[in-house]
Amino acid sequence: TEDEKKIQELLKRANGDVSKAEKLAQSQGNEELARRLREYANK
């Protein structure tokens, strides 16, 4: 999905570090994506 692409892109930029990727999403003002990242990471 589009969200998964965004999540994978963020994870790439954060070198696979979920908490960093989450902070990136939040810094972009994207709380929804940050929440999805957390769920994605907890799979």
Rank of each mutant, 00 (worst) to 15 (best):
4 E>L: 14
9 E>V: 02
24 L>P: 01
1 T>K: 11
2 E>Q: 10
21 A>E: 01
37 L>D: 01
3 D>R: 07
28 Q>K: 04
27 S>K: 10
33 L>A: 04
17 D>N: 08
4 E>Y: 14
3 D>G: 07
38 R>Q: 06
9 E>P: 00
29 G>M: 04
39 E>A: 04
42 N>L: 08
11 L>V: 07
25 A>F: 02
32 E>W: 07
38 R>G: 04
12 K>W: 07
43 K>I: 13
27 S>N: 10
40 Y>N: 06
38 R>N: 06
10 L>R: 01
20 K>V: 15
41 A>C: 14
13 R>D: 11
17 D>V: 05
21 A>Y: 00
31 E>D: 11
13 R>Y: 11
16 G>H: 06
6 K>N: 08
15 N>H: 10
16 G>T: 01
24 L>K: 03
30 N>I: 04
6 K>Q: 13
18 V>K: 03
19 S>R: 13
16 G>I: 02
23 K>M: 11
39 E>N: 03
23 K>W: 11
33 L>K: 00
24 L>G: 01
23 K>N: 07
7 I>V: 06
26 Q>D: 05
39 E>V: 02
7 I>K: 01
8 Q>H: 11
14 A>G: 03
1 T>A: 13
2 E>L: 12
5 K>I: 10
18 V>A: 07
29 G>T: 02
5 K>M: 12
19 S>T: 12
14 A>Y: 09
13 R>M: 15
2 E>I: 13
9 E>Q: 05
24 L>N: 03
9 E>R: 02
21 A>F: 01
10 L>S: 03
22 E>A: 14
29 G>S: 04
14 A>F: 14
5 K>Y: 10
23 K>Q: 13
27 S>W: 06
40 Y>T: 07
39 E>Y: 02
8 Q>E: 12
20 K>S: 05
16 G>Y: 10
4 E>K: 08
10 L>A: 08
23 K>R: 11
20 K>W: 09
16 G>M: 06
36 R>V: 06
10 L>C: 08
15 N>R: 07
34 A>K: 05
16 G>W: 12
1 T>P: 12
19 S>F: 08
37 L>R: 00
27 S>R: 07
22 E>T: 08
3 D>F: 15
1 T>L: 13
25 A>G: 00
21 A>L: 05
40 Y>R: 07
17 D>P: 00
43 K>D: 13
27 S>L: 14
40 Y>C: 11
26 Q>C: 15
9 E>K: 03
11 L>H: 02
25 A>T: 01
21 A>M: 03
7 I>C: 09
25 A>Q: 02
34 A>L: 08
17 D>I: 05
39 E>C: 06
2 E>W: 11
3 D>S: 09
41 A>R: 08
36 R>P: 00
19 S>W: 07
21 A>P: 00
25 A>V: 03
8 Q>W: 12
34 A>F: 02
22 E>H: 06
20 K>G: 05
24 L>V: 05
22 E>I: 15
29 G>V: 03
30 N>S: 07
41 A>Y: 13
10 L>Y: 09
19 S>D: 14
3 D>L: 15
40 Y>F: 10
11 L>N: 02
6 K>Y: 12
18 V>I: 13
28 Q>V: 09
31 E>R: 06
24 L>A: 05
16 G>Q: 05
21 A>I: 03
26 Q>G: 05
27 S>T: 08
20 K>L: 15
7 I>P: 01
14 A>I: 03
26 Q>K: 12
24 L>S: 04
8 Q>F: 11
33 L>D: 03
39 E>I: 02
17 D>R: 02
39 E>Q: 05
16 G>C: 15
31 E>W: 14
6 K>R: 11
13 R>H: 11
9 E>Y: 01
26 Q>L: 15
38 R>W: 03
18 V>N: 02
14 A>H: 05
40 Y>G: 05
29 G>N: 06
31 E>N: 09
4 E>A: 09
25 A>W: 01
23 K>V: 07
23 K>I: 10
28 Q>T: 10
32 E>F: 05
38 R>A: 06
31 E>Q: 08
33 L>N: 01
32 E>M: 06
25 A>S: 01
2 E>Y: 11
11 L>W: 00
16 G>E: 03
17 D>S: 06
13 R>L: 15
6 K>V: 13
42 N>C: 13
15 N>M: 08
8 Q>V: 12
29 G>L: 04
12 K>L: 10
22 E>S: 07
18 V>G: 02
34 A>H: 01
43 K>T: 14
16 G>F: 09
17 D>L: 03
34 A>P: 00
2 E>R: 08
17 D>A: 01
41 A>E: 08
8 Q>L: 14
6 K>P: 04
1 T>F: 13
35 R>H: 07
40 Y>H: 09
1 T>V: 12
8 Q>A: 11
8 Q>K: 15
27 S>E: 15
41 A>P: 06
43 K>G: 11
34 A>R: 04
41 A>V: 13
18 V>M: 06
26 Q>S: 09
27 S>G: 08
38 R>T: 04
24 L>T: 04
29 G>R: 03
43 K>L: 13
32 E>G: 07
6 K>G: 07
8 Q>M: 14
5 K>Q: 11
39 E>L: 02
42 N>M: 10
40 Y>D: 05
31 E>V: 09
12 K>P: 03
10 L>E: 03
37 L>A: 01
30 N>G: 15
4 E>V: 12
21 A>S: 01
23 K>D: 06
39 E>P: 00
16 G>S: 03
17 D>Y: 02
4 E>W: 15
42 N>H: 06
41 A>I: 14
23 K>Y: 09
20 K>I: 14
22 E>Y: 06
24 L>C: 06
37 L>E: 01
12 K>D: 13
13 R>V: 13
5 K>D: 10
38 R>Y: 03
7 I>S: 01
24 L>F: 06
11 L>S: 01
11 L>I: 14
33 L>T: 03
11 L>P: 02
34 A>N: 01
19 S>G: 10
29 G>C: 05
3 D>V: 14
37 L>F: 03
11 L>G: 02
39 E>F: 02
4 E>I: 14
11 L>A: 01
25 A>K: 00
24 L>Y: 07
43 K>W: 09
3 D>P: 06
